[in-house]
Structures are given as C-alpha cells and as structure tokens.
Amino acid sequence: MEAFLVSTGIVALAEIGDKTQLLAFILAAKFRKPLPIVLGILIATLANHGFAGALGAWVTSLVSPQALRWVLGLSFIGMGLWTLIPDKFEEDEARFVRLGVFGTTLVAFFLAEMGDKTQIATVALAAQYQSFYWVVAGTTLGMMIANVPAVLLGDRIAQRMPVRLIHGIAAAIFVALGAATLLGAGESLGF
C-alpha cells in the first residue's frame, strides 16, 4: 500500500505545471468535451506507465541490490532537481485533430509522456518498491488527480495554483526519497 500512496502523491505533485498538464488544458480549451479527453488521458497513462513500471521491475532483475540502491537514490535526487525546471509545451504536440477528441488526446498524451519526468519516476518507483501493479495504479491515479481538474476547470484553476511551491514540495519529496534510499531505506526490499 505504501507503493501506491507514495506513487500517487509524488506523481500528482510532479504533474502540476508539467507539459502533459499543459496539454490537458489546451485539449480542454480546444475541444470542450471533457469525457473523451479524460478517457484518452487515462488510457494513455495506463499504457505509458504500464510500460515504465514493467521496465522498472525488469531493471531490478539485472542490477545487484547495492548498485540498484545507488542508481535509485541518485535517480530520485535527479528527479527532484528536474522537477524544479519548468516544462514548456509545444502546440504541435496536439496536432492529431483528425483522430477525433479521444484519439487526439490518446496519441498526443502518450507521446508527450514519453521520457517525461513522471514516466521516469514510474520506472524508479517500480524498481524501488518492486510492486508493479501498485506503482502503476498509484502513478496513474496521480496523473488523473492532476489532469482531470485541468480538463474540467481549465483556466479557472490554472491562474490560482502556486506552481513553484508545488514543484518545490515535489522536489523535496524526491530528494528525501533519494537520500533515504542512499542511506539504506528499503534494505528489507533487497537493496
């Protein structure tokens, strides 16, 4: 259950102001059809984070527990620093309009999430917790917590969110996880 809760919290915070959240705002403004947008985000996230979680689980079978501890610890610290760098969204990431609202959202969101910090975090969390299903469920829920309000409320909430503060909190959590991992937290998990 810890894997689920930590994954949900970290991704929900890291997603605030992320390029995929900006994409959700743009899709909502462009199409004004929340249900197919939300469903597209959900399915794209499940596919993307399912792949990332499987990769994280696979990495644990390749790397020694001691090396994994260092890789994960430094990865979490790196994620914390990356979280402090604002994302930019390119309008051409939403260029698949001929696919309809659902198809455009699915393809654009899946592609925008490739190599994104929340996808990388999913790989690291799956490796850290060795709990594929709980991590993917948590990171997916975190994405939905951050993006569904963006789709439903759009610009009304965008201007009121303290994005820098939220990024700072997410960065602090990532750095704390990294430091705890480097100091031996998780040894009961095998690293």
Rank of each mutant, 00 (worst) to 15 (best):
S64R: 08
A185V: 15
L68Q: 05
G80L: 03
P65H: 08
G73C: 02
E113F: 01
M143I: 14
T118S: 13
F4T: 03
K19E: 14
V123E: 03
L189G: 03
F102E: 09
G80H: 04
M1R: 15
Q66T: 13
L182K: 03
V175E: 02
L153M: 12
A170H: 12
G50A: 12
L72C: 04
I43G: 01
I77W: 01
G73H: 01
A57E: 12
V63K: 01
T105W: 07
A185D: 07
Q66F: 07
K88A: 09
G100I: 10
A172Y: 09
L153T: 03
G168I: 06
L72Y: 02
A29I: 07
F31H: 15
A112V: 08
L55E: 05
S64Y: 13
L5R: 13
I145K: 07
F25H: 09
F110K: 00
D155H: 15
A47S: 15
V97A: 14
I157P: 01
Y129G: 02
G138E: 04
V175A: 12
F132N: 11
T83W: 00
K88F: 11
I77K: 00
L22W: 13
F109C: 01
Y133G: 03
Q128M: 09
A146Q: 04
G100L: 07
Y129K: 15
V163P: 03
I166T: 13
G115S: 12
G138K: 02
A176Y: 11
L5I: 14
I157S: 06
L111W: 06
E91W: 10
H49L: 00
A67R: 11
L189N: 05
L152R: 00
A158W: 14
F191H: 11
F174H: 04
L23I: 04
A127P: 10
A146T: 03
A172I: 07
P36D: 12
L68K: 00
A52S: 13
M1N: 10
L5G: 05
T181S: 13
G100K: 14
Q66W: 10
G56N: 14
D18A: 08
I145F: 12
L22T: 02
G53P: 06
Q119C: 05
S188C: 04
P86S: 08
D116S: 06
G184M: 15
A126W: 02
I145Q: 05
L46K: 13
R156Y: 15
T60Y: 08
E91H: 08
N147K: 11
A67L: 14
D92H: 10
K33H: 07
F96W: 15
F96R: 06
G9D: 05
L39V: 10
E113G: 04
A146I: 04
N147R: 08
L141G: 00
I43C: 06
A57I: 14
L62Y: 08
L153W: 11
T181D: 02
R164V: 07
